[in-house]
Design a protein around this nucleic acid. Structure first.
Length: 365
DNA sequence: AAGGTATACAACCGCAGGCAA
DNA sequence: CTTGCCTGCGGTTGTATACCT
């Protein structure tokens, strides 16, 4: 049986949202919290379908969203994560809590893919030629291989990290070109985010919605109701966030998913963050907090880590990009803007000494 | 200055999965 | 167990803006 449309298509407004509509939506969410989207259009009087309301909220109005230019660091994160996860934008976004999956997807499609293609043409044909192509390896097979290789990966990483050199050998199952040789610059060169992104995008209207978001941030912090409808924790728990998640469970229940979010896909975290999660040296959430350095509020939005784990595990090798090629660009010192200080975002705490200043963005890695 | 083209981003579409009845 | 609803997600499209000739 066919699925009914999410809403009656007749009389439903489409296209860009007006500030008035935003305000109506935000006001409603302030009162009722996110969720139950089907009821939103009727209660707000908006001539929008529920889906559109949800999308507008999650992609634009939700507090904690950072708009504007992507930092160098974010860019590298995206590329790296895309290589690992493929086009699983939601999973990638969970590592960049201030960015929406839509934003990341757009940024990838408009900037990064182009950039990598350019690089590819500069490097030759091998390497990136399959960037957008699907490999023949079925997902299930990749998953099995991934599981099989988790242990191997972990061991290889801990071995590599325990050594003085910074070369990592990644099991072949993770990447068709299996070797990653992280250059020193990857660990040491810092690419601190630029000054508070002047939120350059869509000047007037965007700023107005940002104001709405800021108002909401305050509301999210203070409203007791929001605690039930949106998962909020303090930054002290490292799983910080104005969780405005919109799933049924979130909107109706607890912060359990945030509390449980200390779990994470270890092996992949190791890939991404370069540490043994069992050492507790850095948590992913801490890592995330580093991206907030240019924000006054540390409230962040976190996706369910369990879900993220699933998403990560679902990664298809077919979407993987050879690291050895990417890294040439990713970690090329030449792209580090001049004047940027060292010891920043990509500084990885290899050992267990976790005495870094937590306000410093260098804790990221 | 005007028209054409390219780019960036917001929004839409439709499928898939989870969940409750 | 089945069914239907709701939401999440990724791909795609539409449009405003920037850039170029």
């Amino acid at each position: 049986m066919g699925r009914p449309p999410c809403c009656d298509k007749t009389g439903v407004k489409k296209g860009p949202w007006t500030p008035e509509e935003d305000i109506a939506l935000v006001s409603y969410i302030q009162e009722h919290g996110p969720g139950n989207w089907r009821a939103v259009p009727t209660h707000t009087g908006l001539l929008r379908c529920s889906k559109s309301c949800r999308l507008r909220w999650t992609n634009y109005l939700r507090p904690g969203i950072r708009r504007g230019n992507f930092t160098d660091h974010e860019e590298k994160m995206i590329i790296h994560l895309q290589a690992l996860l493929g086009n699983r934008w939601a999973a990638i976004a969970s590592y960049l809590p201030q960015r929406t999956d839509n934003d990341i997807k757009n940024y990838w499609n408009t900037h990064l893919r182009k950039k990598l293609r350019k690089l590819e043409s500069g490097l030759g044909n091998d390497g990136f030629s399959n960037l957008d192509q699907q490999s023949a390896i079925p997902k299930g097979q990749w998953e099995r291989r991934l599981q099989t290789d988790m242990h191997t990966a972990k061991k290889a990483l801990s071995d590599a990290l325990s050594l003085d050199d910074k070369s990592l050998t990644i099991p072949t199952s993770f990447s068709s070109s299996s070797q990653i040789s992280f250059s020193d610059s990857y660990f040491v060169k810092a690419n601190p985010p630029p000054p508070p992104a002047a939120t350059t995008s869509t000047a007037t209207y965007a700023s107005s919605t940002e104001n709405i978001s800021r108002l909401l941030q305050g509301w999210m912090k203070n409203s007791p109701k929001s605690a039930s409808t949106a998962t909020i924790t303090n930054s002290s728990s490292s799983n910080i966030g104005v969780g405005t998640k919109t799933t049924k469970t979130e909107s109706t229940t607890s912060s359990s998913d945030v509390e449980g979010s200390t779990s994470k896909p270890e092996a992949i975290d190791q890939f991404i963050f370069g540490f043994d999660s069992s050492s507790n040296s850095i948590t992913t959430s801490q890592s995330m907090s580093s991206t907030v350095d240019d924000q006054t509020s540390t409230d962040l939005y976190f996706q369910d880590d369990e879900k993220r784990k699933d998403q990560l595990v679902m990664k298809s090798e077919s979407e993987a990009v050879p690291f050895s090629v990417i890294e040439n660009w990713l970690f090329d010192e030449s792209i580090v803007p001049q004047g940027q200080e060292e010891g920043g975002l990509f500084q990885i705490s290899l050992g267990c000494d976790d005495d870094e200043d937590h306000n410093n963005t260098s804790e990221f890695f």
